[in-house]
Amino acid sequence: MVIYASIRHDGKNWVVENDHFRVEASTLDEIDEKVRDAVREKTPEARGQKVQVYMAYDNYAIPQWIRQYSSHYFDRVIEF
């Protein structure tokens, strides 16, 4: 199953959130770990299934003057 979330960097930490969970961490390794835990905890129906988390970068967290140049930072996908 695919779970969608947004990702952004607040200057200190990476923040991944959706309607069910919100996690923060300073490195992507840690954030992935926290996302896995959060999905297991908050999305019981995902248990035992192959899960793909699609994290779309929240463009609104990019300064507005820069957004006119490029409207896409990255989308990350992790599977477990």
Partner: peptide
């Protein structure tokens, strides 16, 4: 930076 389970979606090319 190999991270377990991370993939690069090909749709990135279009989004950029």
């Amino acid at each position: 930076e190999r991270r377990e389970g991370e993939r690069v979606p090909a749709s990135e090319v279009w989004h950029r």
